[in-house]
């Protein structure tokens, strides 16, 4: 938007100043929304054709839509127990992710700063981290079930332990890469530890930290679905498992679509926050 257009909106009647916004909206629709919709329609069509024969193992999209229509239009019903709408299921999963991921962010950035700042912490901790991070998320589940004796903290722990490694590693790389010049500026100004952390370290390492956070949120969402399949209760993961046991393939397909969309939104949210925060940071 140029300045002149903004000035227009003050002096001219509203409809005239809306035209450029409408134009923008149209551009977005044509360039960003239309192509994926076309591809989606194409893939849906192929799927429909492939699965329309009577002996097909999977239902075609039209069938899925018919089977799950009740679920789609009633996302927030609650008949007690596990029998809740898809909205509740997803919110339950998101809540676990929120706890586990928040803990991972706090612990991951702290440990990353420690490892990035101190050569001794690097020497001692880095090899441990490098080994632990290769352990698949679900392999932690039995141990945490044994430790916590309860399914909810176990699921949260699995999220935590999945998301923390990329956060630690990226943060420590970011902190280690803070240019000597910035440190010298801080030293000449006599910034204290807290001021250095807030004014120099966090902004300088922010691009690295956010790439770790973004990987972390993606991994958490991957892990929660798998973990919930095993621990049961309300949650999108167990919903899928339950539907499989009841042979409700259409429900599974709907759940997968929701999982994908929510994962996409989570990724975009972290990326958006990252872009806002690191504006201008990566470039000198």
């Amino acid at each position: 938007m140029s300045v002149s257009q903004r000035a227009d909106s003050v002096t001219q009647p509203a409809p005239a100043s809306w035209t450029p916004y409408l134009q923008d909206l149209k551009d977005v629709l044509v360039q960003k929304v239309l192509p994926p919709l076309l591809i989606l329609a194409l893939l849906g069509g192929i799927w429909e054709i492939l699965c329309s024969s009577p002996g097909a193992a999977l239902p075609p999209p039209s069938q899925v839509l018919r089977d799950t229509w009740d679920l789609i239009i009633n996302p927030f019903y609650d008949y007690g127990g596990n029998d809740k709408g898809m909205g509740w299921q997803i919110l339950a999963s998101l809540e676990r992710v929120a706890y586990g991921y928040s803990l991972a962010v706090i612990a991951g950035i702290s440990l990353g700063v420690l490892v990035g700042q101190s050569t001794w912490a690097l020497r001692g901790l880095d090899p441990v981290f490098q080994v632990l991070r290769t352990v698949p998320p679900l392999a932690w589940l039995p141990i945490s079930l044994a430790g916590f004796q309860d399914s909810t903290p176990s699921a949260i722990f699995v999220i935590f332990i999945t998301a923390i490694w990329p956060i630690i590693i990226n943060t420590s790389v970011g902190v280690r890469n803070i240019p000597e010049d910035y440190r010298n500026v801080a030293r000449v100004l006599r910034l204290n530890g807290y001021e250095y952390f807030i004014r120099i370290m966090l902004p300088a390492a922010a691009p690295y930290i956010f790439s770790g956070l973004r990987i972390g949120v993606g991994l958490s969402w991957l892990a929660i679905v798998a973990a919930e399949m095993l621990i049961g209760g309300v949650g999108i993961g167990f919903f899928i498992w339950d539907a499989w046991n009841a042979s409700m393939i259409s429900d599974i397909i709907l759940a997968l679509i929701y999982v994908g969309i929510v994962g996409f939104i989570l990724d975009r949210m972290v990326a958006y926050v990252g872009n806002r925060v690191t504006r201008g940071t990566s470039k000198g």
């Binding site: 010049d181 910035y182 500026v185 300088a204």
Partner: peptide, 9 residues
């Protein structure tokens, strides 16, 4: 400093 070293953020 030799290379300005302003804080880019």
């Amino acid at each position: 400093f030799q290379n300005h070293s302003l804080l880019p953020w």
